[in-house]
Design a protein around this nucleic acid. Structure first.
Lengths: 259, 259
DNA sequence: CAGTGGTCTAGACCACTGA
DNA sequence: CAGTGGTCTAGACCACTGA
């Protein structure tokens, strides 16, 4: 009998090296992928100006000698990537590449530091059971006066303070939160284990550190910081809210976009 | 005969109101979507802990009475959304909801301001043909000493300066760039029309404005700013590079994540 | 070997659009 | 009406994994 634990490690190992399985063993590319790449290449080359009518599914079926389901999958995936617009009864159109809006990825600080080949360590400055003030209650999404858990942790990269993590946690979602050794496991990882995070809201802004943050990060209070706020919930139930403060010169968020 | 222009307007109109077409006219939800929602609900409820083995395609076929292609589509889409991991020959597993890494969307400033129901206007402070210094050449990705176009524009929301846009453009991609009236059209929109933007790299950081930026934005040089840098290319050819500086208190990037 | 997922096919029914 | 995309089916062949 297979155990979940057993297959889990296998899955993790394989998924890591997987990439997309769109090639067969012989190195052949799957037909739907060929259609996709062909259209993508012509879009990049500007063969269809934004809004231009592109070949219909039937035409692509004839051109590539594949079944309609195959070209349909290619087109559906291009649509998901935002490269084309499709309208039932009308046709397929080159999208405005007006994807000026693009996205930036925020990673867990521990993973991010390790990925750079650096060392991470955390110092714990507060682990406390508190009564939520109006402000805290509103940010976390609980009733003012509720019991909340509060931690204040500084994350260091190669010994240099990089992030001040000021976090509130809903005790109902993680009753044992306060007894965790946060020098060994980050709050984020602990919370992921005990509570399924489902929805999240983020913001990123520039600002000045509080007096305490400045002291913990080794900054003057006039030194600019990059501040990330994140609130996570599960089906509407608030789990945690964090304010992550980073010294401006030591931290930036990066991202890339490629269709 | 259909013209591209004609159908373009139809497409735009329809795409706007489209949402996902996964319901039939009668209000019935497509079978693949039912399977998807069922699994998503159980994942949110924690029915499978991260890494746990989930039902096979064959089991879902039997359970829902649909064809294998239908459950395959449901599972493939859940995989794309990062909710499950699939390994050929092994099975389907609940993903670590370790998607701590989430993403933030950067929108075009003009669209963003209009979307808030506010007015946007731009003031132009520099439109110039320059020779790239080493720094500029490196940021844009051209050879030092090349000719480059340079604009400096301030975008206002309801009359208040919100963004200072310092942009360099590769003349080969947009030869008429300097003759555009940037009080009427943003550089981004003009460039999207004349050059297909394909790949992009972004960064977001906190920092202090330059003397000139501070003056244009009505800030002191000690006031923190949120600075977005973006470089876009098409198949490796550099198109444009921009530094977008925003006063800390007036601007933040927001995002949400929901599976 | 039996079980898994990856992919494809040929055909089907439908809703929708524009003429 | 003919043409479009949205979706489904029943079957197929394959590569891969673990026993």
């Amino acid at each position: 009998m297979k155990t979940a634990t057993k297959v889990r490690s296998i899955a993790s190992a394989l998924v890591k090296n997987a990439g997309k399985r769109v090639r067969f063993a012989s190195g052949k590319v799957a037909p739907f992928e060929q259609v996709k790449q062909h259209l993508k290449g012509r879009l990049a080359a500007g063969d269809w100006t934004p809004g231009a009518l592109m070949p219909s599914e039937a035409e692509l079926v004839a051109q590539f000698g594949v079944s309609r389901m195959t070209v349909n999958r290619a087109l559906r995936e291009l649509q998901l990537e935002g490269l084309i617009d499709r309208v039932q009864g009308v046709g397929t159109f080159a999208a405005q590449l007006n994807r000026v809006s693009s996205s930036l990825t925020i990673r867990d600080i521990h993973e991010e530091i390790l990925a750079r080949g650096h060392t991470h360590h955390a110092t714990v400055h507060l682990v406390k059971d508190e009564v939520a003030t109006a402000t805290v209650a509103q940010r976390l999404g609980v009733i003012a006066g509720s019991r909340v858990f509060h931690t204040l942790i500084v994350h260091h990269e190669n010994g240099v303070p990089l992030q001040c993590e000021d976090r509130y946690v809903n005790p109902e979602c993680a009753p044992d939160y306060l007894s965790v050794d946060f020098t060994q496991v980050t709050p984020t990882h602990y919370l992921l284990d005990v509570a399924p995070l489902w929805e999240a809201h983020f913001s990123v802004e520039a600002g000045l550190p509080s007096a305490r943050e400045a002291k913990l990060l080794g900054l003057k209070q006039t030194d600019p910081c990059l501040i990330v706020s994140r609130r996570t919930t599960n089906r509407g139930v608030p789990i945690t809210q964090a304010r992550l403060t980073h010294p401006a010169g030591r931290y930036q968020i990066e991202g890339a976009y490629k269709p």
